[in-house]
Simulated assay, not measured.
Amino acid sequence: MRAVVVEQPGGPQALTVGERPDPTPGPGQVVVQLAVAGVNFKDVYEREGRTRLTPPFVPGCEGAGTVLELGPEVSGLAVGDRVAWWSAPGSYAERVVVAADAAVPLPADITEADAAAMMLQGLTAHYLTTSTYRAVEGESALVHAAAGGLGQHLTRLLAGRGVQVLATVSTEAKAEVARAAGAHEVIVGADPADLAGLVRKSTGGRGVDVVYDGVGLDTFKAGLDSLRPRGTFVLAGAASGPAPALDPQSLAALGSLYLTRPTLVDHATDPAELRSRAAELFEWMRSGAIRVSIGGRYTFEQAHQAHADLQSRRTTGKLLLTPA
């Protein structure tokens, strides 16, 4: 089978297309013919060597396709079923081994492309807004990188509930995307040193109830300084690098803040919980409460360009990868 391979960790050019042995499913696993893979910062971390995978390896974790083969001890799935997943290592390949418990059957009205674009970011937006901090009408939220895939989902869901969303983006073009998703105010290209002041000015000096930060290093301090007393800081990613170390005692000095670093692993690994969240996500997609936003489509041979575009922040929405 063809796959995108990392022979040695490095920059985007470390992604090359090569031949790999066809996989065989083990107990509780299925082999899926890939239709579409999602491109995520997690894949970038793998390529760069941050996750310490042993090369050569196939990056990727998210995708959708058709079940080709069942391993022993698999029930509830059949050859020919369309499924999607967010947590199958090596998803940049024509054939992917997926744990049966992690494979979500797709309803007839959900395409493979839409599913691959939504599994990781859509499920993340689901748990962040329902389990981590359930913002309600009348509250305010700061959403960083609001024109990205996750940022658009968060903005749309929060605004749909009557939450006042303050969004940060890097360009005027991305500001239009954030506004279209429902942001009440957009802060464009602000110096992190000025950001907290702009947020407090927009909230009458009070600060926001919650910060959703998928950027990390560049925005971490400004986000803490943007919160109201007893506000909640949700660190959801590290696109600019890991957030700096923090003395827990400083949270008291900043106003008895709450800080959390949740992960999808802890919210969508249990099979019943995964399927419950996915079912509600699909309903949100049908109703328009959350929308698929595809920012680019690339072939395996263009995987290096997809990673370069993602890291440059030139894109909006989700990037997708197909075998051809």
Results as ranks from 00 to 15, higher is better:
Glu139Phe: 05
Glu139Ile: 12
Glu139Tyr: 09
Leu142His: 12
Leu142Gly: 14
His144Thr: 14
His144Ile: 08
His144Lys: 14
Ala145Asn: 13
Ala146Ser: 13
Ala147Ser: 15
Gly148Leu: 13
Leu150Cys: 08
Leu150Val: 09
Gln152Val: 09
Leu154Pro: 07
Leu157Gly: 02
Leu157Phe: 02
Leu158Val: 07
Leu158Glu: 04
Val163Ser: 10
Gln164Thr: 15
Gln164Lys: 14
Val165Cys: 07
Leu166Asn: 07
Leu166Arg: 11
Ser170Asp: 05
Ser170Ala: 09
Thr171His: 08
Glu172Asp: 15
Glu172His: 10
Ala173Gln: 15
Lys174Thr: 02
Lys174Glu: 05
Ala175Asp: 01
Glu176Phe: 01
Ala180Arg: 13
Ala180Trp: 00
Ala180Asp: 12
Gly182Pro: 10
Ala183Ser: 05
Val186Gln: 13
Ile187Leu: 15
Ile187Tyr: 09
Val188Ser: 09
Val188His: 07
Gly189Leu: 14
Ala190His: 01
Ala190Trp: 03
Ala193Ile: 07
Ala196Cys: 08
Ala196Met: 09
Ala196Lys: 12
Gly197Arg: 13
Leu198Asn: 04
Leu198Gln: 15
Leu198Arg: 15
Arg200Glu: 12
Arg200His: 12
Arg200Thr: 05
Lys201Tyr: 04
Ser202Val: 05
Arg206Ile: 03
Arg206Phe: 00
Val208Trp: 01
Val211Met: 08
Val211Tyr: 02
Tyr212Met: 02
Gly214Glu: 03
Val215Ala: 06
Gly216Cys: 06
Gly216Phe: 01
Leu217Tyr: 08
Asp218Leu: 11
Thr219Ala: 06
Thr219Phe: 01
Thr219Leu: 04
Phe220Thr: 06
Phe220Ser: 07
Phe220Lys: 04
Gly223Met: 08
Asp225Met: 12
Ser226Val: 00
Ser226Asp: 01
